[in-house]
Simulated assay, not measured.
Amino acid sequence: MTARSNRAKADRDPSEWMPSAAGAHCRYLTEWVATKLRWGLTVDPAERGALVGRAEDCPAALVHFTPSP
C-alpha cells in the first residue's frame, strides 16, 4: 500500500473504501475479517453488508486468524 492510498483509506471500513486494484479486493476483505475476528471487534450494519456482498466475489477465499491471547 502506498502512502497516498493509505491516506485515502484513513479509518474507513469496506463499506466506504476498497483498494483501487480489483485483484486486491479478496485479500483485503479476508485480512479485514481476520483482524475483526482476532480482536473480537464489532461490525456495524453497513460494514457487514459490504463484507457479505463483496464476499460473493471471493468464493475460494478463506479467513485465517489466531485469536488474541
Rank of each mutant, 00 (worst) to 15 (best):
T66Q: 14
E47S: 02
L41D: 05
M1G: 15
R38P: 00
G23N: 05
A21N: 14
V43P: 01
P45Q: 05
C58P: 12
A50T: 05
S20E: 15
P67M: 08
V33S: 02
M1A: 14
S5M: 12
E56H: 06
W39P: 00
C26V: 06
F65K: 04
P67E: 11
G49M: 01
G40F: 07
R4G: 02
G40Y: 09
H64R: 14
R4H: 08
Y28F: 15
W39E: 07
R4A: 15
S20I: 13
A22Y: 05
K9A: 11
T2W: 08
A55I: 01
G53R: 15
G23F: 04
L37R: 14
A24R: 13
C58H: 07
S15E: 10
M18L: 15
A3V: 12
E16H: 08
A46G: 05
W17S: 02
A8F: 07
P69A: 14
P67S: 11
A61I: 12
D11L: 07
R12G: 03
R4F: 09
R38W: 00
R54T: 07
G40S: 14
L51W: 07
R48Y: 04
K9N: 02
V63W: 08
K36P: 12
A60V: 02
T2R: 11
C58D: 06
P19V: 00
L51S: 10
D57L: 09
E56V: 07
R4C: 05
R27T: 13
L51Q: 02
E16V: 10
P59C: 01
T66R: 13
N6P: 00
E47Q: 12
M18T: 06
H64N: 13
N6Q: 12
V33W: 00
M1R: 12
M18G: 02
A3C: 05
A34I: 05
R4K: 13
A22Q: 03
A21R: 15
R27Q: 08
P59R: 03
R54A: 14
T42C: 10
G23R: 03
A50M: 09
H25C: 02
D13H: 08
L37P: 09
A22I: 03
A50R: 10
E31K: 11
A55H: 04
P45L: 06
F65P: 01
R27Y: 03
A10W: 10
P59H: 04
A3H: 11
D11Y: 03
R4D: 15
A34W: 08
A55Y: 01
D11I: 01
W17F: 11
V52L: 12
H25N: 04
L29V: 03
E31H: 14
W17L: 03
P67H: 10
W39Q: 06
A50I: 07
A34L: 11
P45A: 13
E16N: 08
S5G: 00
S15D: 14
R7N: 06
L37M: 13
M18C: 06
A8V: 05
M1D: 14
F65R: 09
P59Q: 05
D13G: 12
E56S: 05
S15V: 03
S5W: 07
C26G: 03
P45N: 09
T30Q: 06
S20P: 07
G49I: 00
A34M: 08
D13I: 00
W32A: 02
T30G: 01
L51V: 15
V52A: 12
T35D: 10
V43E: 04
A60R: 12
A55V: 02
A10P: 01
M1N: 13
W32T: 14
F65E: 01
E16L: 15
C58F: 09
V63P: 12
